[in-house]
Simulated scan of single mutants.
Amino acid sequence: MSPVDLRLYGIIDPEWTGGRDPIELVRQAVAGGATLIQYRDKHAEGRRLVELGRALKAALEGTGVPLLVNDRIDIALATGADGVHLGQEDIHPRDARNLLGPHAIIGLTLKTPEQADVMVHLPVDYGCIGGVFATVSKNNPSPPIGLDGLRAIVARTKRGSRCPVGAIAGIDTSNAEAVIAAGADGIAVISAIFMAPDPQAEARRLRQMVDRALASRSVPA
Rank of each mutant, 00 (worst) to 15 (best):
A55V: 11
L68Q: 09
V154W: 05
L122P: 00
G170K: 06
G83K: 00
T63W: 07
L67P: 03
L86T: 01
D5G: 00
L68Y: 07
G131H: 15
M119W: 11
P3G: 04
I37T: 05
T63A: 09
L77Y: 04
S218C: 14
D90V: 12
P123G: 01
I12M: 04
A184I: 12
Q200V: 13
R48V: 12
P66Q: 08
A196V: 03
V179N: 01
M209K: 15
Y9M: 03
V165H: 06
D211C: 14
A76M: 09
A81E: 14
G18C: 09
P66Y: 12
A181C: 02
R20S: 05
G127D: 04
L25H: 08
G53E: 03
A104I: 07
C163N: 14
T157M: 12
G10E: 00
G64N: 06
V65G: 03
A58P: 03
A76K: 06
A176Q: 04
P113D: 03
G101P: 05
K158W: 13
G101F: 12
T109W: 13
Q115T: 08
G10I: 08
L56H: 01
I187F: 07
G33S: 02
V118E: 14
I193T: 00
A104D: 07
N98Y: 14
E51K: 11
N140C: 14
A58D: 15
M209D: 05
A96N: 01
A44Q: 08
R212C: 13
V179S: 06
A155H: 03
L77F: 07
V124I: 09
G62K: 09
P197I: 12
D125K: 04
V65T: 15
P22W: 11
H103R: 15
L206S: 04
V84C: 01
L36P: 03
I73A: 06
A78C: 08
T135Q: 10
A31D: 11
P14M: 14
E177W: 05
K57D: 02
L150N: 04
R40Y: 06
T173S: 06
V65L: 07
G80H: 07
S161E: 08
T173D: 08
L36Q: 10
R27H: 04
M1W: 08
Y9V: 02
Q208I: 02
Q115H: 13
A44C: 07
G127C: 09
P164K: 02
S142H: 15
G53H: 09
E89A: 12
A203G: 01
D172S: 13
I190L: 15
N98C: 13
N175L: 13
R207D: 07
W16T: 08
G107R: 00
M195F: 06
G32S: 12
R162N: 15
I153F: 02
G19K: 12
H85A: 08
Q28A: 14
R7A: 06
R204F: 09
R27T: 04
I11S: 09
L77A: 11
A221I: 13
G149M: 05
A104K: 02
A59D: 13
I37G: 02
